[in-house]
Nucleic acid binder design. Sequence first.
DNA 1: CATGAATGAGTCTTCATTCAT
DNA 2: TATGAATGAAGACTCATTCAT
Lengths: 197, 197, 197, 197
Amino acid sequence: MTVSASPERRRELLNTAAEVFAAQGYNATTVRKIADAAGMLAGSLYYHFDSKESMVDEILATFLTELWDGYDAVLAAGLGPRETIEALVTESFREIDRHRPAVAIYQKESRHLAAQPRFGYLTDSQQKFEKAWLGTLERGVTEGVFRADLDIRLTYRFVRDTVWVAASWYRPDGHHSPEEIARQYLSMVLDGIAVRT
Amino acid sequence: MTVSASPERRRELLNTAAEVFAAQGYNATTVRKIADAAGMLAGSLYYHFDSKESMVDEILATFLTELWDGYDAVLAAGLGPRETIEALVTESFREIDRHRPAVAIYQKESRHLAAQPRFGYLTDSQQKFEKAWLGTLERGVTEGVFRADLDIRLTYRFVRDTVWVAASWYRPDGHHSPEEIARQYLSMVLDGIAVRT
Amino acid sequence: MTVSASPERRRELLNTAAEVFAAQGYNATTVRKIADAAGMLAGSLYYHFDSKESMVDEILATFLTELWDGYDAVLAAGLGPRETIEALVTESFREIDRHRPAVAIYQKESRHLAAQPRFGYLTDSQQKFEKAWLGTLERGVTEGVFRADLDIRLTYRFVRDTVWVAASWYRPDGHHSPEEIARQYLSMVLDGIAVRT
Amino acid sequence: MTVSASPERRRELLNTAAEVFAAQGYNATTVRKIADAAGMLAGSLYYHFDSKESMVDEILATFLTELWDGYDAVLAAGLGPRETIEALVTESFREIDRHRPAVAIYQKESRHLAAQPRFGYLTDSQQKFEKAWLGTLERGVTEGVFRADLDIRLTYRFVRDTVWVAASWYRPDGHHSPEEIARQYLSMVLDGIAVRT
DNA sequence: CATGAATGAGTCTTCATTCAT
DNA sequence: TATGAATGAAGACTCATTCAT
């Protein structure tokens, strides 16, 4: 594997690449576009990275590592189901805030990429993800804090999608902090948008 | 424009193409893959269509036409805000049911395609869409049926995304009819997943 | 695997490719050079072949198949050691005559190519080859028709190289038929170039 | 021309390069592979050498200089034709022993390289070579020590190839000294491998 | 209607080479 | 002397598209 001496340059380039991947899609992003955005020639990128693929790889792997650091901390905290969901959602919006391009790439390309062995960790992560969220929801139903009349898998998908699609429109320069957005989302998800009668 | 003699063959081919586009993404879908799926050679597709682009074009345009037929009927019915939202959501899940590949393509590629003049109608549709949903939500807030303490644009995105992402996992062979899914989604969106205390 | 309908065109192109490979070496031969020699564009070759590699593959495999057809016939004929060597040498020069470019490629590139699993048959062939020649020589020593005072492996290499290097200078338009060359080579190999005293 | 301070380092590097060139072929050898083998970075080689080409150049030129030192001594010794051939063959195996990588490179690449003006000396050397060997053989035929019934150019190629291909399998750590191998080769070439009847 | 064959532009990648430090 | 980083030209391969049959 190509590893350049200065990790800062590497990270810089990966940030640039992530931005372009997120904006144009992995396939539509040519190595030349990334290089242009980085102010160098296409071939020069290969001094730092093995391939275009290894770039997404590193972008996604880095993001998922950080994501799971946060998630695992939440899951280990021994909170009740509702508080766990609240903490996971908040953590998710924080990740979207910090890794927006990576999250957008993950959303658009992970299904596609996961077909390759190299990206097996995407599938692994997705399974861990499902277990964490679905498990918490089930616990909540059991403990009577979440509604029992809903299809639990539907609920899971609802909550999951609801959070992560936000990465497609979220712009960090907006007026809302990730915590503020999380609070509103949680309010909608938990209590609905209808006025209580 | 190339027009083949039999419109049925044309529609068949477009269905095939839509399936492949949805499964692999527009860019990753080669004309050859579509032709393979249709049991012909790549070049032969050009008897029926001008280009790969004109295929997505026709797929998306057909879908949007039908979608707006349904939406316009709902919007013209003079329902109250809550009933309008319910009808729009239900209509949306019906469209997902009937045009799943088209919806999936729309989700993944529309931002990307809308950059080209040829696909200007995607932007138009999106604006009409926003006006319809956002307007209904605002009306609902004014009339006191939707919560006033939420950022209305956030609510809009929440409801919109919540519905359409379903196209990414929806499988028509499932146990749930579109109406059943719509009912559950509406229940979650309107009343939340938390048990009322 | 790409297989064009007309095997003749395929063979034509392979002949062209073999000529270029033989003249310039596999690595130094660009796909464009082959295409130029064939009067088409580089990309067009990929309608007929999967890759540059698959071209050499087919060239070498075809050659080796024919070679072993001939060799196996000789080995199955139940000849004495000396007659076997004579027949093998003659057969070899015939193959050089018919597949000169393929033989030249085999000489120059087989060691290099054999490293890849795809070309495993090169190693197999080489082992069969060694067994056939070395075995015959050993039989000859045992039966007293070949000298016993020589290192048998050295003799094997001597005879083997002696024959096959001829491919590097042999030109089919020469005055010598393959049989004539074989006869002279055999005379040298068997009886030496020195005048008997 | 770049000239490094210590000629020993230069020679070390050339030996390394020759080894890699011989093992992988000139074209397939990247400057980076040579640098790896030498324990430095690719760019660093350019402190010592002008180019990859100048490396082979120096390797081959050095080898040919030494070869001709030996050959010229033999040719000047006034030996009879048979003794001259014996001495040349022995000298050749000694060169193979001392410059195996260079000889291998010469075998594989000289035809290819000779096309460039810079390597004109390869053609010159080859012509001198032919004159020496062919002349000696002709003298031998005239003097009645070599067979007159053979095509003399065929004989020349036979003897020449017979000796030099050995470089492709010769390994200095073997049981045979160059002189021993030369003796056996000469015995085969001069007297043949068949038992005299 | 469909095939077979080709085009040509573009993509990812490699690599010899340069040069400031 | 050697490194790190970059250049730029070229190479293998892909793919939308064309067109004669």
